[in-house]
Structure formats: structure tokens, C-alpha cells
Design a binder for these strands. Structure first.
Lengths: 107, 107
DNA sequence: CCGCCATTTGAATAAAAACTCAATTGAACA
DNA sequence: TGTTCAATTGAGTTTTTATTCAAATGGCGG
């Protein structure tokens, strides 16, 4: 039997359970990252100015978000720039993300 | 340090973190219960006709939902009737629940 | 090339959550 | 009261997830 995170790591474009995706968001740090990225892309360092967690821990959380395809990573010199995944962004209206299975709007 | 579930068990009316509440929803069984209850109250037996899990396991999940104040339980003879918590229901429009910190709409 | 900075990885451990099983409760009704 | 059904509880175990630490990577400037 596969764990939700395992499922996400292996899933194709539109192959995931709503619960698995929610599980990735259901964490203070990861949710903080997503809310931060609602205001636009930013580097790990910038993200961490808001969150203030161990950088190595943040990196693990970012990896989880990436594997769930909730965020993307690009490089700018020696910085990594994170942004909300285009699929979420495309359907975004205001402070909300559309996960396909459900849509979450933040206050 | 308290776990998210611990936080929920102890929280007052409007004292919770969004991540903690999302964590409760981030499970196939519990999400299934909530989606079922979007169509109206039902008994444990009825809920389990849809979900088909060990009844004792379902009971544990229902308890988690109750402690997070996402659902309520009343008695009808020897049946327990579950319903979405009034706070969510009051603000509900269509197939969505308003958690205060965020609102989730299902497709 | 070297050293530095930003970030990531992997392994090891700790903590939390899910599940199972045996036993219990509460309500109905013979 | 005793039995049965519906649901719950609690303890114990397994599985997942979070966190920490040491070490590595990739890019840049000197």
C-alpha cells in the first residue's frame, strides 16, 4: 500500500487523490510557502525571511511541494526561484489555488 | 511542542491554525465523510455504505472530525447521526466548506 | 582553480498519525 | 433482565511524516 506522498511522487499530470494533495498543503511551513508565492515568485532566502525555519528543513518541504507539482523551481544565478505551478496559477483568481479536485481560497 | 491534532482538541471557537484543520481533511476517509455530509446528515452505517472501511476505523476518523469541530453528532434511537458543523454549513454555498482560515470548494 | 554562498541531498532519528483488535457503551425490544 | 445491534473506546503496533545533522552540489567572483 502506497503512502499519499508516494502516490504524488509517481503520479502523472492529472492522476492524484484530493486527499494526497491536501496533505501536502496541511503543514504550517508548506502552507506558508504557498501563501507567500501567491504574491509572486521568490527565492528560498526570501521565503525564509518570512518563515524562519532551518534552511535544510525548508528545502525538504520545498521538495515535497515540488513533487506534488504545486510549485516550480528555476535558477537565477546561484539562487533558486520558486513559483506556484502554472496549472494552479492559470486558474487562480485572487488569493486562491485550484487543485483540480478542489479549490482553496485564502482569507 | 504540540501536534496539529492536539492543537485542535484543545482549541476554542476561533483558535486554530489553517494547517491543522486542513490536516484533518487531508485523508481519503475523512474527506469522504465530509463530501458525503455535503449532501445532508447521515448515520454511520449509511456513511459506511459509501466508504466501506472497518467500522471501528471509521469511528476513529469520525472522532477526529468531531474534535476538529468539522462535524456534529446527534442520536436517533440507536443510530448516531452525523452532520457538517453549523459554522461550516451556515457559510456553505454549493459544494464548499468555509473553514474560517480558508474556503474549500469541491468539484 | 579556490573559496564562498545558496541550496540540496541522504541517512538517521524522533514524532505523529493510521490501523487493528478486544472490550465497552447505549438504546431497543423480546 | 438478557440479547442484539450500532457505535465507540483504549491499548498496542505499524506505517508515515517531520526534523536534524553531516556532507555534497552548482554557480560565481577572485
Amino acid at each position: 500500500m502506497k503512502s499519499p506522498f508516494q502516490v504524488l511522487r509517481e503520479r502523472g499530470e492529472d492522476d492524484f487523490s484530493c486527499a494526497s494533495v491536501l496533505k501536502v498543503l496541511a503543514d504550517d511551513t508548506r502552507l506558508g510557502v504557498v501563501e507567500r508565492l501567491l504574491d509572486g515568485p521568490s527565492t528560498v532566502t526570501e521565503i525564509n525571511e518570512t518563515l524562519g525555519v532551518e534552511s535544510t528543513l525548508l528545502s525538504h518541504h520545498l521538495k515535497a511541494l515540488r513533487e506534488a507539482k504545486l510549485v516550480t523551481r528555476t535558477r537565477q544565478g546561484r539562487y533558486a526561484v520558486y513559483a506556484l505551478a502554472p496549472e494552479l496559477l492559470a486558474r487562480r483568481k485572487g488569493r486562491s489555488v485550484d487543485l483540480g479536485c478542489c479549490k482553496i481560497s485564502f482569507s
